[in-house]
Computed example of a mutant assay.
Amino acid sequence: MLLESIGVFLSLGAYLAIAIPIVGALVRLRTNYNPKSIQLDAEGNVEPHTGPIVTSFFGMLKRVKRIEGWGGLYKGTMPALLETVALTLFVIVALDTGAIRYGARAPNTGILGSLAYATVALILNLPAVVVTFRSITTPYRLPWFNPVYSLRVLLTPTERRKPWIIYFTPGLLAAQFLHLAYKIIFIGSLRRLLLPSLPSREDNWIGNISFWKLGIMLAVGLVSTVILCPLEVIASKLAIQRNHAAPEYNSVAQEVEDDALNNEEYAEYTGAEEDVIGLRHEKDPYLGLIDCAKKVVNEEGWQALYRAWWITALSGLANALG
């Protein structure tokens, strides 16, 4: 049992070592603000957008390494590690004490049961997603073993006083829920109808498969990218949008208070003269899921909703097979 547990955590370490730079580049690419037209400065004067223009996943990966170095590639490691360890311990203790393994599947309780299970997991996991995404996109260097300081950088004073306000980030919970509901209700129901033998993983499941039905499922998984990728892009943009309560600003706009923190940016540490990504001004926030979609299309073009679409497509193919 002990050796098996050690093996699980070693595999977790290897997984995170590979996954974190990939997730970091993906989050940065999708949250990078790259408007098509001129912008207005704080005084209302017209000024051209001077932020980075990065349109490819591998281009973003190279940019992160060039500007922030290896440390930048592994931004978000600590919140991701804590989240993964907590989830794994929960699986070990509560769900699968007899067969410890990373990535255990949710209980097979039907479509509604799976949706309920995933919804609870989504709600519990949402703050971790927000902290991880903000850790990845912040230009500031965060200490690995000082979570109090890091949270002061990542969260606004309002969010620290009322942490539940994160759940009211406009449109975020809706985008996340629609994403998992589509996969569970539509794709899951279709998979149960066309490929009922797949979830059981019986020894002879290959012989029970109709390959034209398998082709339909793979096509559905691929076409679902049209719906799922925009939801992922929108959720990424909304997750890094901080909540504020300063009366002179919009309720989700940037507060004046800097919290008396002396923050060092990665660009200053590495000697770079620019940040990895540009972010949309917080004084003009997204007001919800639909508002975010409209503003992204109007300001950045509809292509911005399909950044790194091929990663969503690969995930959709895997999800189509269970």
Results as ranks from 00 to 15, higher is better:
residue 201 R to A: 15
residue 125 N to K: 13
residue 22 I to K: 04
residue 123 I to V: 15
residue 213 K to M: 10
residue 187 I to V: 13
residue 19 A to C: 01
residue 321 L to S: 10
residue 37 S to H: 14
residue 44 G to Y: 07
residue 55 T to P: 01
residue 109 T to H: 00
residue 62 K to E: 13
residue 47 E to M: 12
residue 46 V to T: 14
residue 111 I to N: 00
residue 291 D to K: 03
residue 185 I to T: 02
residue 208 N to P: 00
residue 154 L to V: 06
residue 112 L to V: 00
residue 198 L to I: 11
residue 181 A to M: 05
residue 136 I to S: 05
residue 223 V to A: 13
residue 102 Y to C: 02
residue 227 I to S: 00
residue 219 A to I: 12
residue 106 A to V: 02
residue 50 T to V: 06
residue 250 N to E: 13
residue 207 G to Y: 08
residue 57 F to Y: 15
residue 266 Y to I: 07
residue 281 H to I: 09
residue 44 G to H: 04
residue 133 F to W: 11
residue 176 Q to K: 13
residue 316 G to I: 03
residue 286 Y to W: 09
residue 244 H to Y: 06
residue 239 A to S: 14
residue 293 A to P: 04
residue 197 S to N: 11
residue 141 R to P: 01
residue 132 T to I: 08
residue 148 V to D: 11
residue 111 I to Y: 00
residue 240 I to W: 05
residue 234 I to C: 04
residue 99 A to W: 08
residue 111 I to R: 00
residue 215 G to D: 03
residue 5 S to D: 03
residue 171 G to L: 05
residue 126 L to Y: 04
residue 177 F to P: 02
residue 119 T to H: 00
residue 292 C to A: 15
residue 290 I to V: 15
residue 322 G to W: 05
residue 119 T to I: 03
residue 191 R to A: 11
residue 229 C to M: 02
residue 31 T to Y: 08
residue 38 I to S: 15
residue 287 L to C: 05
residue 272 A to I: 01
residue 280 R to I: 10
residue 261 L to G: 09
residue 165 I to C: 08
residue 263 N to C: 13
residue 108 N to V: 09
residue 41 D to P: 04
residue 125 N to P: 00
residue 29 L to Q: 06
residue 267 A to L: 07
residue 124 L to P: 01
residue 123 I to G: 07
residue 90 F to G: 13
residue 10 L to S: 09
residue 43 E to C: 04
residue 115 L to W: 00
residue 215 G to R: 06
residue 194 L to E: 01
